[in-house]
Design a binder for these strands. Structure first.
Length: 623
DNA sequence: ATAGGGTTAG
């Protein structure tokens, strides 16, 4: 094999499909012909890129025709698979398939997996039933492909294919069992997934990886480490790049930078730091842990970047409030000829929107429109939430109008943001109007939370309780946020007993009360003067957050309890040495009691610590 | 030929 063929093979193995094809096209213009083994590899690159455009496949097809390699059986199957990977070129795949005088089971599999990738599971099943008519027998690859269907969303669908696999006796094939693990995890069937995984005698790196990513997607990042340790201990299988990606992502969701750095070290030892996906996941991990500097170092030092790497870096800068740097990265990306996609725009627009910098958010929104990118729902939703946070009622209404015109106003996410925006702008009746427009209300608790929280913020506690009751009647499961809103409504309307009852409900509905729930109840008790009970509740928490101490301090201010007040203020001073607020409240307590000597002492403390600068701003839109 | 991975709204 020539050196150039080896280069192409290596690039594809590292997932650098675009670079592989670029390298090939340079060779081609110098009239070099790759050997017959290289074409299927190039076609693999095409099929991985073809979700964007089938044009690469077409170019390669033409070259194959000239060299006569197209009739090579493996090559023609690879070609079919490459066309089948994109729904636009699917007819071409079918044409090639139809022209085969005697299709093989591999050719069937190629078309069938195309259907799976495109999310047309029904068509894949129709094709599956035709296999027998050609006197062919489905094999493990057929079953694995059926299991990989993008639109499989129901555990029973997986079970059906699982049964087919059992009948054919291929259920212990590594490909099949791996697809079963991913199939079940994708539908939230972690129990089944675990069962399949545990019962396997033969496990592959891929099987481990599949199981780990299933754990990650289902919200069990800690278990990822468990499996990873098992894998390292058993020495049965060595981790590879994909393993590292899952483990790094687990560190990212846990915000555990210490582990993250260790895995980064391991990646260097394994010489995996040149791999695009490892780089991308490291950038994401460091950004999420708040270390944009490390993320930027990894990003700059890496030779291999792709669109997703750029997007992660931009999003990372944005989430670390480094918007200027995010824009710089964005401009570098454009300079290097990488075309931004909706996720890129979303990071920029959503990032600015979240910070309440509208001018910039709308500026990039306009730029996006000029670039001919249709505004996707995510972006419109971010803009809407930006309007909500800064009470930009007029802009919010414009976005509502836009959504009505393109008929997306009934999307769950969008409607939630819409209700939230109207509520935060104080337009309770408009929020209610949006809510009433739904005949069948979304089963998503967030939608209900926006109404309950909104009524609460606007002081209409009775309506908040009504919506909560309606939510329960509709069998929508409340979540942590729901309880925070309901508890705070109880606290603001002075309904102590009702609040305590709701607090009990949290455990009864199978949730674990979080510090913020304790905070609400502390506030509830504190406001009604039951300071002792409130204090006992605080002691139930292992690590009470500052907010809990603040509520109790507030209650001490109301009921003029200087002892407890002193205790709370000192705790807070320990936690937030830069914040003068607790001391100010404490001095107010002493002042109200007429204990001026204590007031002097606290004032002195404030000056000694150099904390006596206070400033505050608030903003409203005047219609 | 077929399986596993990273970014992204309320």
């Amino acid at each position: 094999m020539k050196n150039s063929d080896i280069t192409v093979t290596k690039l594809v193995a590292n997932g650098l499909y675009k670079q592989a094809l670029q390298f090939y096209s340079k060779l081609h213009s110098s009239s070099h012909t790759p050997n017959s083994f290289t074409f299927p590899i190039l076609l693999k690159a095409c099929s991985n890129l073809s979700y964007n455009s089938p044009s690469q496949t077409q170019i390669l097809h033409a070259h194959l025709f000239k060299t006569g390699f197209h009739s090579h059986p493996h090559t023609s199957t690879a070609l079919t698979a490459s066309y089948a990977a994109n729904s636009r070129s699917f007819p071409d795949a079918f044409k090639l398939f139809d022209e085969m005088p005697q299709p093989t089971i591999t050719a069937f599999n190629a078309v069938l997996s195309g259907h799976s990738r495109n999310g047309t599971r029904g068509e894949a099943i129709v094709l599956f039933h035709k296999i027998g008519l050609w006197n062919l027998r489905p094999n493990s690859v057929t079953i694995a492909s059926l299991l990989a269907a993008r639109d499989i969303k129901n555990e029973s669908h997986v079970q059906q294919v699982h049964c087919l696999g059992l009948k054919l006796g291929v259920e212990f094939d590594v490909y099949v069992s791996t697809s079963l693990v991913t199939g079940y995890s994708k539908c939230g069937g972690l129990i089944s997934s675990n069962k399949v995984f545990e019962n396997l005698q033969v496990k592959n790196v891929v099987t481990y990886n599949a199981f780990m990513s299933g754990l990650l997607q289902n919200g069990f990042p800690r278990l990822v480490f468990h499996v990873f340790k098992d894998m390292m201990m058993s020495l049965e299988q060595k981790p590879n790049m994909v393993t590292l990606v899952s483990v790094i992502s687990a560190c990212a969701t846990l915000l555990n930078i210490h582990l993250g750095k260790q895995v980064h070290g391991l990646s260097m030892k394994m010489e995996a730091c040149d791999h695009v996906m490892v780089v991308t996941s490291l950038v994401d991990m460091y950004s999420k842990c708040g270390c944009w500097g490390f993320a930027f170092d990894v990003f700059n030092e890496s030779k291999t970047r792709n669109l997703i790497t750029w997007n992660s870096m931009i999003a990372g800068m944005m989430m670390n409030s480094e918007s200027e740097r995010a824009v710089e990265v964005f401009e570098r990306m454009i300079d290097e000829g990488v075309l931004p996609d909706p996720a890129t725009w979303n990071s920029l627009i959503g990032g600015f929107a979240q910070k309440g910098v509208f001018v910039e958010a709308f500026k990039y929104f306009r730029k996006m429109l000029c670039a001919g990118v249709a505004p996707c729902l995510k972006i419109v939703t971010s803009l809407l939430s930006a309007c909500a946070d800064s009470s930009l009622l007029q802009s919010g209404k414009e976005i509502h109008g836009y959504a009505l015109r393109i008929c997306v106003d009934k999307d769950d996410f969008f409607a939630t943001a819409l209700v939230d925006m109207y509520m935060k702008c104080g337009c309770v009746s408009l929020a209610r109007f949006v809510f009433d427009q739904f005949e069948a209300k979304p089963a998503d608790p967030a939608f209900w939370n926006a109404m309950i929280g909104g009524y609460g913020r606007n002081g209409d506690y009775e309506s908040a309780f009504e919506i909560y009751d309606e939510m329960l009647a509709e069998m929508v499961q409340p979540n942590g946020v729901t309880f925070v809103s309901v508890l705070s409504a109880c606290s603001h309307s002075g309904q102590v007993e009702r609040g305590l009852h709701v607090f009990k409900m949290i455990r009864e509905s199978g949730l674990d009360p979080k510090p913020e729930h304790f905070g609400c109840v502390v506030d509830l008790l504190g406001r009604s003067g039951r300071l002792g009970e409130a204090r006992d509740l605080v002691h139930e928490l292992a690590e009470p957050p500052a907010s809990v101490f603040y509520s109790l301090l507030g209650a001490c201010r109301c009921y003029l309890d200087s002892n407890l007040g002193e205790e709370m203020a000192m705790k807070l001073l320990d936690m937030e040495p830069e914040n003068p607020a607790p001391l100010v409240v404490l001095s107010n307590i002493y002042a109200a009691l007429g204990r001026w000597r204590e007031v002097e002492r606290i004032r002195g403390l404030i000056t000694d610590k150099g904390l006596d600068k206070l400033s505050a701003v608030s903003m409203i839109e005047v219609a």
